[in-house]
Every structure is written in C-alpha cells, then in structure tokens.
C-alpha cells in the first residue's frame, strides 16, 4: 500500500494515518484508528450516522475525503465523555430521556447536538430540529432525542 500520511488531532490527541486517495475520513477513523463509534449508514451524506466534528463543524465523515483532514481538529463520539469516563451532559440526557433505542444513530445525533450547543448554548426547539435534520433515527425516537438536547442545554447553561 502506498498512499499518504494524514496528520490531524482526534479527541485532543495527535494522530497520523496512512490513507489512500479514495479513503473517506470515516474509513480513516474506523480502519486506521479503530475509532468505530462513527457508523456508516448510507455512505452518501443522507443519514448522518457518520457525523463527526471537524474544526467545530458537524460533517458527514462518509463524504469527507481523508486527505482533507490534514491539520484538522476532529471530535468523535469516543472523545465526548471526560477523560475520567464521566459522561457529557448530552450523553447523560440521552440516557435519562430514553433517546437511545438501537443506538446506531446515537453517536451522530450526539455530535450534531454537540456542534449546535458549542455554538448556540440555548437553542430553540426549531434550531435543534434544524441541527438534527441530517440525522436519521429509524427507531424514530425523535421526540425523546429533542427533549434530551433541550435537557442538556438547560443543564450546561445553568
């Protein structure tokens, strides 16, 4: 395998991954770094299961060329909880609100919600719905998911 080495930080730690030109960021994370929290659902930017945060913005890692991650700061679901393992308010709110069913969409949902709350600490329900519109939940627990984001926002902004 030839390829190129892409360097970025993931969840605060420096990483270097050897990738092929046709690799997506999702493949680099899952296969190169064994961070399998981000899922591949549709592979076409429709479902949001692969959502990660790149330089503060939620993106579909399935459509993000791996080589474009050079120098970026990336957050995956593995980096959302604190280093001591205590859950992020969003993660706790998802559990408390019953916002997790099969769990396949959950990492993407949490990261879309985190990208929103990092920019907009007190979002309206409309803003939450807009921020999560690109994340599909086939168990259709949307109401609980929105309630979880509202609960986390309330807790985080005191």
């Amino acid at each position: 395998m030839d390829g190129v080495v892409v360097r970025f930080t993931v969840n605060g730690e420096a990483a270097a991954v050897r990738v092929e030109p046709d690799w997506t960021l999702l493949r680099a994370l899952r296969e190169g770094l064994e961070l399998t929290g981000a899922k591949e659902g549709c592979g076409a930017g429709e479902c949001g299961a692969c959502t990660v945060i790149v330089d503060g913005r939620a993106v579909n890692a399935c459509l993000f060329p791996a080589v474009e991650a050079e120098g970026a700061a990336i957050t995956t679901i593995e980096g959302v909880a604190a280093a001591d393992g205590s859950l992020h308010p969003l993660q706790r709110a998802f559990l408390d609100s019953g916002a997790v069913q099969c769990g396949f969409c959950t990492p993407g949902m949490v990261l879309s919600a985190k990208a929103l709350l990092d920019r907009t600490p007190r979002p309206t329900e409309d803003e939450i719905r807009t921020a999560l519109a690109g994340n599909l939940c086939r168990c259709t627990g949307y109401v609980q998911i929105i309630e979880a984001v509202q609960a986390a926002a309330e807790e985080m902004s005191g």
Binding site: N60, S112, G134
Partner: peptide, 9 residues
C-alpha cells in the same frame, strides 16, 4: 440545502 452537515462542507 441538505442538512447542516452538508451545508458545513
């Protein structure tokens, strides 16, 4: 357009 993830990129 699309979703926030798509619009971000």
């Amino acid at each position: 357009v699309g979703s926030r993830q798509v619009r971000n990129v």
